[in-house]
Amino acid sequence: MKSELIELIARVLEVLRINMRWMTWNLFLAFIPLALSMWLFRTKRGRSWVWWLGFLVFYAFLPNAPYLLTDVIHLIDDIRNIQSVWMITLVIIPVYLLVILSGFQAYVISLINLGYYLHRISKSQWIIAVELITHALCALGIYWGRFLRFNSWDFITQPDALLTRGIEETLGKQPLLIIAVTFIILVGLYWIMKRVTLGFINQLNNTTTIQSESVNSHRPKAE
């Protein structure tokens, strides 16, 4: 019994070690558009050529954030390798949930920042349309990444292959169906997570305001 437990723990640690490599890399790619969204949309700067270059890079890397949703396919292999309900439930699944939710949260905050920017430049009426277009582009990017194995930097390293092979192999009935389903999933999850995130931000702001008012009310008045 003891040797079996040691073997199981060793197997779980090996699975986590292997997973940490691709999970860390995919999370790094997911947080690139988040960092760019803070720079592009939360700071007051003019739309110079540097800004537009950053904007293009932002959209090139943005599909990496929701792409983590598709990494759930690796969970199936991990379940087969470990075959322990407790280890799967208490270790493997929580790790996957943390990584996937972190990636998707980066996607949500990135689009919230974009919406904030549109509101700031008096283009609030464009927010929903821009979000839907972004979901569609990311659904396409996820398909290219998962099935055609393209990367964000292929826009620079092999743009011809990206356009020719990417378009040719996307126009089939099955690829379009996969992209459509992915789009629907992105719209639904984003709608939920956006409201949860904005609700949390509003609650945090309200709490900060109440605390600030409480501190000010206890300050002695100047004579």
Rank of each mutant, 00 (worst) to 15 (best):
D154T: 12
T164G: 05
L68W: 04
I100W: 06
S3M: 11
H74Q: 13
D154H: 15
G145L: 08
I210S: 13
R149G: 06
L75M: 14
N64P: 06
F200D: 03
E213D: 11
I156K: 01
D160H: 11
L163H: 02
M38H: 11
W51C: 10
I156F: 12
I201E: 13
W153N: 05
W86G: 08
L163P: 00
I210V: 11
Y116L: 11
W153D: 08
E223F: 12
E223H: 09
A35T: 12
A136P: 02
L68S: 03
I32K: 01
F147Q: 03
F31C: 01
E131I: 01
L56H: 06
L69E: 05
D78L: 00
L36K: 06
K194T: 00
Q105A: 07
I127G: 03
L137C: 08
A106N: 08
T197N: 03
I156V: 14
E168I: 05
W49R: 08
F104L: 09
I156T: 05
M87R: 02
W144M: 14
L101E: 12
A10W: 06
A60W: 09
A136R: 03
T209K: 15
L34W: 11
Y143V: 01
N151H: 12
C138V: 07
T197S: 02
T170S: 15
P159L: 03
K123Q: 09
Y143I: 00
Y67L: 02
M193F: 12
R219C: 05
L27K: 01
K123Y: 03
R21Q: 14
Y190R: 05
H135Y: 15
N19V: 01
Y143H: 02
H135Q: 12
V187F: 07
V99I: 06
V99C: 00
I142F: 04
V215G: 00
A180Q: 02
